[in-house]
Every structure is written in C-alpha cells, then in structure tokens.
Design a protein around this nucleic acid. Structure first.
Lengths: 200, 200, 200, 200
DNA sequence: CATGAATGAGATTTCATTCAT
DNA sequence: GATGAATGAAATCTCATTCAT
C-alpha cells in the first residue's frame, strides 16, 4: 500500500518535472499533453488521473515548482550583517538561481503575456522579492548604515537589473551593481570617505 | 499603377495593425489567423500574400511596430543639459511610452522566449537603449557633473527598473528612481576625489 | 488486452486497404486524407494515430502491400525444371500478378518519381527480381541447357517487357516472349533451324 | 507588330519550358501555377493569357514538348543497313535520348498513374515506337537476315529494357542487349558457334 | 492503475482562377 | 499585354480529452 503511494507520488513528480521542462521549452500552448506525458514516460491518459487537465497541471506545477520557496530562502539574509556584503552576496546568488532555473524564467516570460495565472505569479513573486529586500534595507537604515530612502524602489532597482540582465544575456557584475546602488544609499556625506567604494 | 500599390501598402498596414491588436488581446497562440484576417477585414488567404506565415507576420509586426525609432528619438537627449533633469524626463517619458504600448512589451518578451528572430530584436533593442543612455552619462562624467563610473551598468539599472516595473505593474516613481541613482553618480563634494573607482 | 491490440491492428489494416483503394482510384494527390479515412470508416484524425502523414501512409502501404513477398514466392522456381517450361510459367504468372494489382504498379511507378523512399523500394524490387531470375538462368547454364550469357541483362529484358507491357496495356504473349528470348539463350546448334516458330 | 508577335511567342515558349521543368520536378499536382509562372519569369495572371488553365498548359506542353518528334526521327533508321549495327546504334541513341530528357520521363511516369492524358500519350508513344521498330525488323526478315518472328514483341522487348533500365537506373549495355536479342532472331544455323560472345 | 484508441473541432496553409488597374 | 491583389474552397494536420479494456 505504501509502495503504491510512493510510486504514485513518484509519477506525479515526474509529470510535474516533465511539465516544467516541456512548458519552458515550447511554451504553454506549444506544449502538447502528449509531449508532456512522453517526457514523463507515461501515456496521455494517465496524466488525467493525476491532474484534471492541462490547465490544472500548469497551475499545480507553478505552485509546486515556482520560485517562491527558494526566493524566500535566499532573501532570508542575516539582518545584522553589513549592506555591502549582504547585497553582493544576494545579487550573485540571485543571479545564479535565475541562471540555474532558466526553464522557469523562460516560462514566466513567455507565459506572462498570455496566461493570467502566470502573470499573477510573476507579480506576486516580484512583490515578495521587493518586499523582503526592502525590509532588509530598512533595518540597515535603522542601524544608520544606510540613509533613509525609498527602500522598495531601491530593491526594485537591484532586482530588476539582475532579472532583466538574465533575460537579455547581459548579466551585470554584482559588485559593480552594488557599488552603484550603495553610493546612493549610504546615509552620510563624509562617511563615504571612510569606506572607499571597493569592488570585491 | 500607383493606386494599386498604395492600396496594397494600406492592406499590409491593416494586417500589421490587426496583428498587433489581436496578438495583444489573445496572445500569439490564442490568436488565430482567421481572427487577424477578420480584424483586418480580409480573408485568411490574403494574409499569405503579404506574409509568409503567422510567425512571419508576428516577427515583421514587431520589427515595424517596434520601439526602435521612438526609443532612439527619446534617448537623443540634449547632452548639454544637467543629469537630474534629463534623467527624470527620460524615466518619465520612457515609462509612459512603455505603458502606452504595454501590448508590444509583452509580445516582445513572450515572443523572445520562442522565436530566435524576436530574441535578436529584443537584444538589439536593449543594447541600443543601454548604449545611448550610457553615452549620455559619459558626457556628463566629462563635464564633471557625474563621477566616473560604469555607465553601462548604471544605464541598465535605470532602464531595467522601468521596463520590469511596467511588466509587473509596479511602475516606480521616476523622480525617486533618479534620485536614488544620482546619489551614486553625482561627483559630490569631497568623497569622489578620494575614491575615483572608474570603469566606463 | 489482446482484444484491443487485435482491433487496433485491424484498424491499421483497414486504413492500409482504404489507402490502396483510394490512392489507386484517384491518384495520390487526388486522394484526400478525408477520403481515405471515410473509406476506412474512421475520422481523419485517427489516421494520424497510425501513420505520421499521408505520405507516410503511402510509403508504408506500398511496403506492406508491395510485391516483394509474392515476387519471391513466384521466382522461387524449381531450378531443376527446363527453361522453356519455367520461363513461360513465370512470364504468365508474373504478368497475371501485375495485372491483378495494376493499381499498385502504377502507384509504385508514380510514387517513385516523387518520394525517395518509394524509389528505393522500387529499385530494391527490381534488383531482387532480376537477381532471382538471373540466378535461375545461371543454373540452367551450368546444366548445359542454356549457353553462357549475361544472365542479368537477359532477366531484365524478360521482366521489363512484362512490366512495361502491363503499364501501357500492351501485355505481350508469354509464350512468344519466352520463345524469342530462348532462341538466343539455348546452347544448341542446329536445333534452331528445325523449329522456326514465327508469328506476326 | 512583328516584334510583339515574336515576344509573345517567346513568352509562350518560356511558359512551356517552365511547365515541363516544374511539372517534372514536382509532379503535375505538386506544381503550382505560381511556381510555373515564377520559373518562366512572369506573373501568374499572364499565364492565363496564353493558356486557358493549368490543365490546358499541361496538354499543350505535352503535345509540343513530347517525345514523338524526336522518337520518330530516331527510329527512321536506314532500312537497308544490317540489323546488329542498326540495333546497337538505336539502343544507344534511344537510351541517351531518354537520359537527356529525364524531365519528361519522370513526368510521364509520375503522371501516367493519375492523369489520363499523360497515360494516353505514353501508350501512343510506346505503340508508335514498337511499330516503327517492328517495321524495320520486318524488312530485315524479308531480306533474310532475320528469321520470321513476332517483330512487335521483339521490338517491345528491346525498347522496354531500355526504358525501364533508364527509370530504375539499371541501364543495360546496348551491345549486350542487342546480342541477346539477335541470337533469337537471326535466321542462321551455325552462326552461333562462330560467335559465342558470353559475359555473365 | 494504466493504456492508447478514438473523436471532433479547429488551426494553418495552399492554390487555381479572376479581374481592376 | 501584363500585373498582382483578392477570394473561397479545401487540404493536411494537431490536440485536449474521454473511455473501454
């Protein structure tokens, strides 16, 4: 009985993986149920035992294979550590994550135009990302490391540059990016002289 | 002779317009050739007199209705005017342009995932945009208004924030954005002289 | 389990039969997929479950309904029996076979002009036919019944006359044909003068 | 006025040539009017000034570009010359002609199955060819060079071998072919022993 | 659980022919 | 004569989904 369950879960996972791969590769509309089933090593009919429809498979896949979990993990940075360190780390890691999951990135891009569900997820994703990063920035403002500023917009700037850089194959250098950002964020005039903007 | 030609050109334009409208409305895959032809007041067959395929129509439409011309116009900013003024103006205008043509932005992004020709167009677009803006920044560096810096990355940051903001419906405030940017760019008081981390 | 399989095979056969009938009736281009499906009592879509395309159906049909098996059977003649008897029998039977399946002959010839796979099949068929007949002739040379000669060309002559005769509706008389052939092949010396069986 | 006429005739010829080439290349159904017009360097519309329809163009082309004239020329052999010489010459020349006009050969083959007009032409062609050759053979019978025999079937054998050889890329050697034929036709008795040209 | 045969609706594309210019 | 825009009909093929086995 438990074996059955395990097999079943396995199948489900296979299908989700296959769905991600094939959707990313051919786009949501371009991918046929047959393609996905084949990629998962099953027959089309079986897909309908695990998911109600192609649509349902897409939704579930987005929920279970989405960026959210990893994104949260990655942005749960130590709020006590200095900004430059944290931001460079984050920019690097975030960029790498996007590169690692190029599948999903492509899918989001191609799907955002067409599919309201994907669009929604993308928006939520961006919102959450900005929010988490902005929160961190706010704590650094409180410590006095950073000057008061519109942290959400600042977060947006950083993340946007990384995401779009990924998409257009013009990945910016993390250190440079952070350096540029920081010189608009650090709260002092003369402080700067104490910390000669290095570049990793 | 000329009348015929003119009418033909007209038809072609109609088809491109219809394509833009219908693609934007239903997505590339969701839009049928029949839909587009109907929107242009034409039989589906005629579409193939003017374009080789649905895909070809999409590519051509993006090329001819693309942002390039307007982008160039908009970035051909007065190189003598001060940065803050110019950048706010540009951020505002650029953002508005994208907003006005949100359809196109989405089609570009989604198409880029599928069609290499569209990806190429998009890449060229981004490159050109960054290049033009970076050039302007460089002249301001020369005048001493801005400190030496990696102008390309700076340009990318500004533009990315606007574009992605558009896509995710989180348009940043132009003034705020520029203010943030500038505080890393302005060749302010004494700091800069001490730390001239240039690249460009 | 087996029932399903059997039914599926049955369907496939139906489609092949229908293809042969309809192609023969209307020509390859004149026959629509719809026609063939209808003739098989099936919806057009199903055809693509069994065959990759109309063209693929044609190729497969020619391969599976082709002459090869029967040809081999027919040419596996008794190598011990005298030439005249064997050849007349063969010419008659071969001609009859072609006549019975005139449709197939025409499809082969016309398809060979278009599809390389069909051309290949046809070439193999011809080669095999010549080879088998030539082999038989060679054994008769060894027994001394026939004089040494280019057996392949001789085989080609006989078979060509029958095939082309079929295509152009000018089927030659088997006995006459063989008689003509033999009088160049028989190793005798003066026999010929004794039996001048003319016609015309 | 005469210039116009000349140009018009030129156009017509171009179209016929183009039709032959394109029909042969793609088959009658596979060739579109647009293809043919393009191959002739004109627009589809113009084709309808010179011919009533695609069908009409085909018929006219077959009539004006058919094998008949050349075939007749080639078979109008000197009836006084000895058989071996004439037949070898003829087999060689005929084979070469078919090779030179591979276009037409292919068209006849592919079209014979579908198009009754082409079928008809092919039949007529073969009939005429056999007739002409048979007539020659008959005169040689009268001179005593050849023994009495079914000259039509003999002619058919020779021509079939050449035609099918052409089609299946197994062109037989003209000399060998004629040698084989002759040894069934020559009215001699002991000749055979004098010239036992074997091959195999 | 799992298969894969079957369907029906619809999508893209082709094409011979006509005719205003 | 010559063009090429325009049409309408049809053809090939795809696909999500269902269901008997």
């Amino acid at each position: 009985m438990s074996v059955r369950r395990a097999q079943a879960r396995q199948r489900r996972e296979s299908l989700l993986d296959a769905a991600l791969a094939v959707f990313a590769d051919k786009g949501v509309d371009g991918a046929s149920v047959k393609d996905i089933a084949a990629a998962a090593g099953v027959t089309p009919g079986l897909l309908y035992h695990y998911f109600p429809s192609k649509e349902g498979l897409l939704v579930t896949m987005l929920a279970e294979r989405g960026f959210m979990p990893e994104l949260r993990e990655r942005l749960r940075v130590g709020h006590q550590r200095p900004a430059r360190e944290v931001l460079v780390e984050l920019a690097t890691g975030f960029g790498r994550m996007l590169a690692d999951r190029a599948d999903l990135v492509r899918l989001f891009l191609s799907g955002a135009a067409t599919d309201p569900r994907i669009r929604e997820q993308l928006t939520a994703l961006v919102a959450e990302g900005q929010h988490l990063l902005a929160d961190y920035l706010a704590t650094r403002v409180e410590t006095g490391e950073l000057r008061p500023h519109d942290t959400v917009t600042a977060a947006q700037m950083l993340l946007s540059a990384i995401v779009l850089g990924q998409v257009t194959d013009r990945v910016p250098d993390a250190a440079v990016l952070v350096e540029l950002i920081l010189h608009g964020l650090i709260a002092s005039t003369s402080t700067t002289s104490q910390s000669p903007p290095a570049r990793n």
